[in-house]
Write a protein that binds this DNA or RNA. Structure first.
Lengths: 301, 301
DNA sequence: TACAAATGTGAGACAAATTCATAATTCTAA
DNA sequence: TTAGAATTATGAATTTGTCTCACATTTGTA
């Protein structure tokens, strides 16, 4: 059966208008065209859709069944078009975020929570799983925004700066390093270093401190959760380097010491990478604005 | 936006097959045709439905929205076709009944109840309102079956005999006519006659007794409900003539007397009129079978 | 970089839907 | 009952749109 939307519209129009001729007007076509169409449809369906004994054409049982379908389906088409309009105007869309920095969960959640309230129609998600190759995923539209601290010049991609942070040393108060004011590469030589389970070029300790100084720590341990890292550090099972915003709560805790890395001041900048086309979408701009201001507020308390 | 079912099928196939070329196979068309179609669809929608940066073509956000629609709508089309097949094979359908004889409610309800259980898919209804012109309504497919006791030879219409019945006189036990064994036309001259509110040619008392004898009763009263007629008769406010099956309960009631009409035995036959095309439909045949046997059983108790 | 795999494009063939003109019904009211 | 109005049906010509074929272009991969 070769059904088309045209046929559903026809059925509905004939029912509404109470006849074929009037329906033709509704649909902006000639009465003849409708007559042909109805005939063709009935031939296809192999069943009479109309009662022809009476003069203003009337729906048969089968026709009524089809009318029901039409009345269920046609509004859905209109809804689709509305959705597309909303998509085009940027009122709605998708914001799937990939994070390269594991610790970003901490400020991202509150930001997303705020965002969700302002843009309930936007489909938000965080994809931690494919943290490895986030930028290609962004290009393929598998995600829509990547949080990264390594801006790359790629055509079609924009890196919007968010905020700066300091990678900070954190250790147990009973650790000998607690005596120092600034921690340098050499200090790690005798330490067990705890990091997130990602490659070295994604870890500030290595890119900013250890790799340039060609220093290798005594041992390495990879742990997924920030809370667990802090627990291990607290019981002096190792030391770690974490962004300052993560250490907000730890600073006022006597079990821990936090120290800047040295010798010079080390500062890093986070970026939100988006596709060029998306960058000007209203909801995207709003998200970036929130991601700029909210984490700073959080850090202040 | 000029959406067609074809497009929904395409979207679904491309998603399933994970690419345009494979989808073309699924749909039995060339890859080229699909490419043209997708381009046309995107032009119409004014929005990208696919991500083209990656090579096996992939759905975009808008495309996913459309996929959802496709997955909701396409099964409904299949369901429609199934329904049409069932309609054609007569498993389902409509059985709207018009009754010319008012008292037929009494046996029709139990029959319909039985029928409904056997053919739950058939849409049943009784139309009492248009009792006047039932046969034309049957021709126009406004109803599908007419209960009548006046068979007429009309092309395209079949009168299936159901069962015979006797119109019976019913009066109060305190009515003088209770003394007679058989009631004849003359006996009505002094009586208030209670009938259903329909024309005389649809009432057995008139067609079979009074009109041939040119007798007019003392008075006439039209009442809609059988129970009310019996109530009035019971309190001797009038007499009536009803089919024997209606008087089943009354016979054993000392307040009433029931008598045959005379002088000869008067017998009438009920028919179920259907359109020729419908007569052989399984559910129709079944209904007629029930309407033949069940009322007889009911009458026996 | 070269080769394979996938998608895009243009022209012509073909099918299907529409229109125009007109015929054939059915309805309605005198 | 019948004329005239209203409604639907039909045939031929035209238009519209979709498909295929052949080839170009792009993207992925070893």
């Amino acid at each position: 059966m070769h059904l088309e939307f045209r046929h559903l519209r026809t059925i509905r129009a004939i029912h509404q208008a109470g006849g074929l001729a009037r329906a033709a007007d509704l649909l902006n076509m000639t009465q003849s065209a409708l007559s042909h169409q109805v005939k063709g449809l009935e031939d296809q369906a192999g069943i009479e859709l109309f009662v022809r004994r009476s003069k203003p054409l009337k729906l048969s049982v089968a026709g009524l069944r089809m009318l029901k379908l039409a009345e269920r389906i046609l509004p859905e088409i209109d809804a689709l078009e509305d959705d597309f309009k909303a998509l085009k105007s940027g009122k709605t869309g998708r914001l799937h975020i990939a994070i390269e920095c594991h610790a970003c969960f901490d400020w991202l959640f509150p930001v997303l929570e705020l965002f969700r309230r302002a843009w309930p129609e936007v489909d938000v998600d965080i994809r931690a799983g494919l943290a490895f190759e986030a930028l290609p995923a962004l290009m393929r539209e598998e995600v829509d925004l990547v949080i990264s601290s390594d801006p790359v010049k790629v055509a079609g991609m924009i890196f919007n700066p968010l905020f700066d942070y300091h990678p900070m040393f954190v250790g147990s108060a009973s650790n000998p390093l607690a005596a120092k004011d600034v921690i340098v590469a050499e200090d790690f030589r005798d330490q067990m270093l705890i990091t997130y389970p990602v490659s070295r070029d994604k870890l500030d300790v290595f890119t900013e401190v250890l790799t340039p100084a060609k220093v290798e720590p005594r041992g390495l341990r990879q742990v997924e959760l920030t809370a667990v890292i802090l627990m291990l550090v607290g019981s002096n099972r190792g030391v770690s380097v974490l962004p300052d915003w993560v250490l907000r709560d730890v600073r006022s805790n006597a079990d821990y010491v936090t120290r800047p890395l040295g010798p010079g001041v080390i500062m890093r900048r986070l970026y939100a990478a988006t596709r060029e086309e998306d960058a000007m979408k209203p909801f995207m701009a709003h998200f970036i604005k929130l991601a700029r201001s909210e984490p700073v507020k959080l850090q202040r308390g």
